[in-house]
């Protein structure tokens, strides 16, 4: 359902969407049933002249079962929901697959600095490419990201990846994603971070390996004499 509003650009976006759909139908079933019964009772038992209400304590066994049975069913559904939620969570947040590349993300009030590995494919070397507010990624490549903050809490959110992770000053938080679609989408900060919180949009650019190679060549510091890649890419 979510894909109607938002494209899926990571391997696990589909997992989250599917879990959403499962929960959606479960809650529509339960919530819908409860609402229908509520409205039906309101209609069926509206006040009529000369008809007195019934006297039901709800304390007797044959009455309690009307609550007890749905209540156990809720518990059964809960077990399924918990299993689904935890398995999706485990895959995205707890498991850390071997990366092909690693990118650095540094958040500050109110901008993003993205650090890409250069031609050697290794982060934290001399040929790293730093960009402001633009993250360049290669399609079908498993990435680790390393989140750091210079000041307050921020949150790294890429809606098309269905990914979100808060960034805490003083810590380096590592996670992963694997883009599966070429294109350009929003990156948001989703943790309030001061006056400019609404003013730190960034973009993720996902390209083929070949295009990315071109981009690296054009932007490697030294080769083109610039410390920061031009924003035109």
């Amino acid at each position: 359902m979510i894909e109607a509003y938002l494209e899926r650009a990571s391997t696990y976006a589909g997992d989250i969407d599917n879990l959403f759909s499962v929960i959606f139908w479960i809650v529509v079933l339960w919530g819908g049933l409860a609402e229908i019964i509520l409205f039906y009772f309101c209609f069926r038992f509206r006040k009529k002249e000369g008809v007195k209400g019934q006297y039901i304590s709800g304390e007797e066994k044959h009455q309690k079962k009307w609550i007890a049975i749905p209540h156990y069913l809720v518990l059964v559904f809960d077990v399924f929901l918990i299993a689904g939620a935890i398995s999706v969570w485990y895959n995205i947040k707890q498991r850390l697959p071997e990366p092909d590349l690693t990118v650095g993300v540094v958040a500050q009030q109110w901008a993003w600095t993205f650090i890409h590995p250069g031609a050697d494919g290794v982060l934290h070397t001399e040929d790293d490419i730093k960009t402001i507010d633009k993250l360049h990624l290669i399609e079908n490549t498993t990435y680790h990201f390393e989140l750091e903050s210079k000041d307050v809490l921020h949150s790294f959110s890429v809606p098309v990846f269905r990914l979100k992770q808060d960034i805490i000053p003083g810590r380096k938080i590592t996670g992963w994603f694997k883009p599966i679609k070429k294109g350009e989408w929003d990156i948001q900060c989703t943790e309030i971070c001061g006056i400019g919180h609404g003013l730190m949009p960034a973009r993720v650019h996902i390209t083929s390996a070949y295009d990315h190679q071109q981009w690296i060549v054009q932007n490697t510091p030294g080769s083109s004499g610039q410390a920061y890649a031009s924003a035109s890419n």
Partner: peptide
Amino acid sequence: FLIGGITGIFLGASGVDIFFHDT
């Protein structure tokens, strides 16, 4: 309140909350 209650289930499920948190 029923609507409020059932929509909370999406957020309590950690897997979906990765996307929905702070939206």
